[in-house]
Design a protein around this nucleic acid. Structure first.
Lengths: 197, 197
DNA sequence: GACAATTGGACTCAATTTGTCTATCTGACT
DNA sequence: AGTCAGATAGACAAATTGAGTCCAATTGTC
């Protein structure tokens, strides 16, 4: 990571809590510069506009989170457990930081206006990663997809959809985690090879 | 309470959480109107300006809180206990609603700009009420001021000063409550009549 | 229908914010 | 000391937002 990147990263890390506190609309570039400990002029050297800055923040959050998701999926262990951990990492990285904010709704809307493509790409990648993990588990005979009749990609999409549905009611410590755990248990049972039943 | 007052009260009650959320500066009249469920035009029928609205809010909070403080002091029981309860009511009514907000500092500053007289008057009244309670307790022989050498007004001012000092570090559940309890125990010991020692 | 209360919307004016630019400063390196 | 790159304060125009006012239209009440 070069110097330029470290500077940008520092700015984005400083900007996040400001956006969370005030929402996109009420946050000014002066607020962000002050929080980052730099001048407004310098802020404009790093980002050409508030919208570009927000987009970069979204991109960074998605990049870091997806790296974490990928790392979690590449661990050893039961595939369902790894998927559960991956979903958890996804939520921790992309929803939790905002989910408790009173400005969550406005921020999500802003994100969809300014960074929808990034969000969609990350979601696609998540599904691809889950699908890949399921496919490999099937090769190894760890799970049996024949009984449920689904392909890895379909199962991955289902899991992502459930996660989506749950996230809309997200509040830390709410029933969201429980719903997700339930889904994982159901999957585990449904995908268990006959040989282990 | 007439209709006009109920309307104003409703607006002020709606405005408080908005101010707490955004601070005075970033809160707009449109925000308040939306939260109160009325039009911006109606909001201006009730209050001529944002500053007047804030002042009215401060006045209302002080009025309600001081009524509660007075009621608590007029209960039966040990005078020190009643004073402790009164201080607690004062803090609950005037500090707790903001003390946990990230905008606490800005809001207190705004209050001092727009409603300093109200704040000072309430503080004076608090001291007068405490002083009165102490004076009556002395008449009844419940406490002995001779040993400490203070007059009721001096003691009342001391208590208020301690409360002030503590409030600047106020965070819910912080050490503030403990400091105040300690002061009360000390007072209880110091003012106990010799006959009971 | 009369009446009062409320509203959306248009409007002005002032303040704020955005984004740009320049002259100046600072610190590192030579 | 001289040079250079990066950061800064501050000024600035343009755009946006917000405050406060006003009124015609609407709503609900009697």
């Amino acid at each position: 990571m070069n110097n330029e990147d470290r500077k940008s990263a520092h700015i984005l890390d400083s900007a996040l809590p400001v956006f969370v506190r005030y929402g996109f609309q009420k946050t000014t570039m002066a607020d962000i510069a002050r929080t980052a400990g730099i001048s407004r002029a310098s802020l404009y050297l790093a980002f050409n506009s508030k919208e570009e800055l927000f987009r970069a923040g979204s991109a960074r959050a998605h990049r870091l989170t997806m790296a974490e998701v990928e790392a979690v999926l590449n661990r050893t262990g039961d595939v369902i457990d790894r998927i559960a951990a991956a979903i958890s990492a996804f939520q921790q990285g992309l929803i939790a930081p905002f989910g408790n904010s009173e400005n969550a709704k406005e921020l999500f809307e802003t994100n969809m206006e300014l960074a929808e493509d990034i969000t969609i790409a990350a979601r696609s990648k998540l599904i691809a990663l889950l699908s890949e993990a399921l496919g490999e588990a099937r090769e190894r005979g760890e799970i049996d997809l024949a009984a449920s009749g689904g392909r890895p990609a379909d199962l991955a999409a289902l899991i992502a959809a459930a996660m989506d549905g749950i996230k809309h009611n997200f509040r830390a410590g709410g029933p969201s985690d429980e719903s997700m755990r339930l889904l994982m248990r159901i999957l585990q049972l449904a995908l268990m090879p006959e040989s282990r039943r």
